[in-house]
Design a protein around this nucleic acid. Structure first.
Length: 282
DNA sequence: AGGATAGCCTGCGGGC
DNA sequence: TGCCCGCAGGCTATCC
């Protein structure tokens, strides 16, 4: 479900709604979603929340203890159907099923400040706990490619110019670049005018540059629209994203291309359902 | 190396 | 109304 724009939307919201609050207690309802230590200290009980970080589709929460001690860290990966929801005091979640973890928060004076819940019906997501951000980075992030919304990806794509893989499979490989999923791969390929099936070794350098620019542009527009809601995705405030209104190809197989009017084609590329325009994409 | 496949889960929409 | 089937935004393991 959530790709980079959705996770970034949640991260930015949490940055403005949880930083400085303290975790009063943690309620684990389904321990299986937590990998690594799952005791209350590892899950931030008593710690004060710092600004969350993100790399690709992964979100890192940081918890600070006594002054001078290193912050603890955990990765929240939302998988296909995961949600991190911020609830105010007394606020009940829209749905109470599939809630696996709940952090109850208090402000600096100890007054109730609501909670954050991790909800994930399909349970493809999970939580990984670490003693420090450095440990988290080594275990989970150091093997990922550069964040797809960060610097210019052209040099990274050029590293794969002899690869026989399809350009779409390459974009979805989180070791190549982190954050692109099925929706934004199709949208960026449409914007760049490149067919998803094309082998990397047959892309011209100018096409690689165009693709890099399109990936970043599509992701930035999607972040501005607060992500794409198809079914499960909600911001931490429980709201839907808006970028699905701007999708050019994803979910539109058989419909008319918004640019040229030709029927969009669909098929399987890199084991994922894929939609492209036979006229606009070469 | 990278393809294909299966598996991890639940929910939903379509066809009957 | 209900049942069965296929499919879904992610990722990993295994085999070839």
């Amino acid at each position: 479900m959530p790709e980079l724009p959705e996770v970034e939307t949640i991260r930015a919201e949490l940055a403005s709604t949880i930083v400085g609050l303290r975790v009063l207690n943690v309620d684990v309802r389904r321990a299986g979603v937590i990998r690594g230590r799952r005791d209350s200290a590892a899950l931030f009980e008593g710690l004060t929340l710092a600004t969350p970080r993100r790399h690709g589709k992964q979100l890192a929460l940081l918890g600070e203890g006594a002054a001078g001690s290193e912050p603890r860290a955990m990765v929240v990966h939302l998988g296909m159907s995961g949600q991190l929801l911020r609830l105010g005091p007394e606020e009940a979640p829209v749905r109470s099923d599939h809630i696996h973890v709940r952090w109850e928060l208090v402000d600096a004076r100890g007054r109730g400040a609501g909670s954050v819940i991790f909800r994930d019906p399909r349970r493809f997501g999970g939580i990984w706990t670490y003693d420090s951000f450095e440990q988290l980075y080594e275990a989970r992030w150091s093997g990922l490619g550069p964040d797809a919304a960060g610097e210019d990806l052209t040099p990274r794509l050029l590293e794969y110019r002899r690869s026989v893989r399809s350009v779409k499979a390459t974009m979805l490989d989180q070791q190549v670049m982190a954050g692109v999923g099925n929706i934004y791969a199709d949208e960026a390929l449409f914007e760049a005018g490149i067919r998803p099936q094309r082998s990397m070794r047959r892309l011209k350098p100018t096409e690689m540059g165009r693709l890099a620019a399109s990936i970043r542009a599509v992701l930035e527009r999607a972040i501005t629209a607060r992500g794409s809601t198809l079914r499960d995705y909600r911001t931490s405030g429980g709201e839907s994203g808006g970028f699905q209104m701007q999708h050019q190809v994803y979910g539109r197989g058989g419909l008319a291309c918004r640019r040229c009017g030709k029927a969009l084609r669909s098929g399987v590329v890199g084991q994922r359902s894929t939609v492209w325009c036979p006229l606009c994409q070469r």
